[in-house]
Design a protein around this nucleic acid. Structure first.
Lengths: 201, 201
DNA sequence: TCCGGGTTGGGACAATTGTCCCGTTTAATT
DNA sequence: AATTAAACGGGACAATTGTCCCAACCCGGA
C-alpha cells in the first residue's frame, strides 16, 4: 500500500497541525486519507453542542473510505490531535484498488467487518454497564496504544460530561482501584484486565 | 441472488419459530443467512443479564456475513420475532460470490459501510440526547417498517429498562408532544398521534 | 513578569434512569 | 370457562449522571 502510494503521482502527502481537520462532517470529499504519522480523533458533532468520538486513528489507518464507498456526505469529523502526516488518495485511485486488487479488497472487507463488530460491542457495554466499566476499558486502550488524551476527549469518547468523568475517576482512586497522580495511569494492561474481571457476571 | 440461491443445491431453506435462534452468540458458524420472510432481532447478551439490540432484520437482509468475512465467533444472537424463513448459504458459496461477482462484492461493501454509518449515528444520539429523542426515532422506525415490537425489545434497542421506557412514553403522552423542542424530528402532530395511538387505552 | 485563556478538580443541586415490587391486563392452553 | 404465564403500567426509592458554578493550576505571549 505504501509503495503503491508513494509511486503514484495522484497521491499527495499533507500535513495537519493539532486541531486541524482532515475531514469535516457534512462535506463532500474526493479523497481517502491514509495516516502516516500522528493521532486523530473521529467524531460526530451533534447540534446540541456535544461531540461523540468513535475512535482514535493512528499510523497506518485509513479514513474517509465509507464516503468513498457510498458517495455520501461525511459522517464525522476527522481532527488531528497531534501533528499528522497523511496521504490524500483520490477516490478514483481507491476505487481502482478495490476493483483490481483482490488482496486489498479482502483487507477492506475485513476492516469494515471488524469496525462493525467493535462499534457494536462498544455501544452495547456503554449502554448496559456502569460508566466505571467503560472508563477502565478506555484507560486500557489508552495504555495499549500509548496515547495521552485530554479529559475532554476521553469524556467525548465515553459519551459523558467531563464532570462525570472526573467523578468516576475520583471514586476509582478512593477505592484504590487506581493509583494516579493527576492523569497518568500506573497500571499495566494485565492489572487492568484483572480489575475488569470484577465487573463480570 | 434469489435465483442463484434456489438453483444451488448447497443452499437450503430453513424455518424458525418465534423465539428460535438462527445464530447464537459465541458459536462458530459455517453459514450465512438470507431472510426470505419474517422479522428477527440482532442482539448481544451481556453477562450481567442485559441485552442490547442493534437492529431488526427483515425480508431480503443478510446476516452472519461478519463472521464469514472475519472467521470469528458470532458477535451476537439472531432470534426470530415472527415466524422466519431463511436460506442457509455455506461460507464457501458466500466467499465465491464475494470473489467472483463484482456486483455482489460492491453491494456487500456498500451494505457494510452503511451499517457502520448507521451504528455510529445511533450510538451518538443515544449517548448525547435524552431518551425521549431516541424513543421517538424508534417509534418512527417502527411505523415506517410496519413493525409491532414488544416493549422489552424496544427497551433493549434503546439500551434502557422497560420501566424507563414506560415512564418516558407516559411523559410524551401527557405532554401531547408534537415535535420536540430543539430536536430535529419532522413529525407532524397527526403522524405522532398515529404513532402513539397503540399505546393509548 | 504578569496577564489571559485553557485545563483541571470538585461542591451543590437538578434531572434522569435503574431497581424492586405488586396489581392488572392479555393471550394461550387445557 | 378456568388456569397460568407472560406482558403491561406504574409507585417508591436509590443510584447515576448532568448542569452550573467557582477556584486552582499551568503555560505561552505581551
Amino acid at each position: 500500500m505504501e509503495t503503491y502510494a508513494v509511486n503514484n503521482p495522484a497521491v499527495v502527502q499533507k500535513s495537519f497541525a493539532p486541531g486541524a481537520r482532515l475531514i469535516r462532517q457534512g462535506d463532500t470529499i474526493r479523497h481517502v486519507y491514509m495516516i502516516l504519522d500522528g493521532i486523530t480523533k473521529c467524531y460526530i458533532a451533534e447540534d446540541n453542542g456535544k461531540d461523540y468520538i468513535f475512535e482514535f486513528l493512528g499510523k497506518g489507518e485509513i479514513t474517509g473510505e465509507l464516503e468513498a464507498i457510498n458517495k455520501g456526505a461525511c459522517l464525522c469529523n476527522i481532527e488531528a490531535i497531534t501533528p499528522v502526516q497523511a496521504y490524500a488518495i483520490p477516490h478514483s485511485q481507491f476505487a481502482a484498488l478495490v476493483q483490481n486488487n483482490p488482496t486489498f479488497n479482502q483487507l477492506l472487507l475485513q476492516e469494515l467487518a471488524t469496525r462493525i463488530s467493535q462499534t457494536c460491542i462498544r455501544a452495547s457495554y456503554q449502554q448496559l454497564y456502569p460508566l466505571e466499566y467503560a472508563l477502565l476499558r478506555l484507560l486500557t486502550l489508552e495504555a495499549d496504544q500509548h496515547l495521552l488524551l485530554a479529559k475532554r476527549d476521553m469524556a467525548a469518547y465515553l459519551g459523558i460530561s467531563v464532570r462525570s468523568f472526573n467523578r468516576t475517576l475520583k471514586e476509582l482512586r478512593e477505592r484504590n482501584i487506581m493509583h494516579t497522580t493527576g492523569l497518568h495511569i500506573d497500571l499495566t494492561k494485565q492489572q487492568l484486565e484483572n480489575i475488569l474481571k470484577r465487573f463480570e457476571e
